[in-house]
Structure formats: structure tokens, C-alpha cells
Design a protein around this nucleic acid. Sequence first.
DNA 1: GCCAACGTTGGC
DNA 2: GCCAACGTTGGC
Length: 139
Amino acid sequence: MAKWLFKSEPDVWGWDAQVAKGDAGEQWDGVRNYQARNNMRAMKVGDRGFFYHSRTGLEIVGIIEVCAAAHQDSTTDDDRWDCVDIKAVRPFVKPVSLAQIKADPRLENMALVKSSRLSVQPVTDEEWEIVCALGATKP
DNA sequence: GCCAACGTTGGC
DNA sequence: GCCAACGTTGGC
């Protein structure tokens, strides 16, 4: 099962808003970047991902699960843009900050560090385990 | 709020 | 198909 990372500015759409949606989840709309879209098209129901707060927060705050495969982004009529639905699984016991990730040599190749502007990113199984351990949270 | 890095657009 | 100009993102 593949692992991913979703970035959002908490002022726009944060972890609390995601949790409030419950198991129904919410579409991860508004992505207008081909690489991010392609990542979403590669997702399968049941895949898990990290939820990262960008700009304000700068930390991974929880784990989400993909609950619907890629479909048309309903916020646009442009059929180039797809999105998946995700739901909150559990919060991190200890949020993992960007500074922590940058300081850990095992995580130096994370897309979060290397391609900081990509809003939907793949995460390797190894990175997944390390970050969950840092967050004191069950993967 | 600033600005560097990146992606996209559009003229040629 | 190149590349300059522009807009957006996101760390600081």
C-alpha cells in the first residue's frame, strides 16, 4: 500500500476541518498542478498519507486515508483536474516539525525537503515508519 | 511581509 | 521549441 503526504495551509483547510468531516471524508480539491494530480491518480482506496500544515504550523499533524479514488474536481469544469477524497484517521501524538525532518539524515530525501512546493507527494515506506516513530504514533 | 524557487504562459 | 515574463507557493 502506497503512502502519501498532503499539504495545506491550516488557515484554508486544516486538520481540524478534516476531522470535522468524519468518515465521509472530503475531496482534496483545488490542486492545479500536474505532478500533484498524477500522484492523486495513482492513489487507491485505503492508501494512507500524512497531513502537513504549510506556511503556518510547518508540521505533520496527523494521518489520513484515501476513501475515494481520483475523480473530477467538482470545483472546476476543467476535466484536466482530478482529486481524491480523504478522511482523518488519527492525529499525531507529537506533531513532527519540518525542522525535525530536516535535522534527521534518514529523511533528507523526503519530497517535503527536496520539492517543497509540490502539494501532494509520495512518501516511501521507510520514511513513513520513521515519521510515525518521531510522532509517537502508530503507523 | 519578503523573496527565492518553481511552474505556467505566451510571443517569437 | 525556446525563453522571458509573470503568478504562486511556502519557508523564513
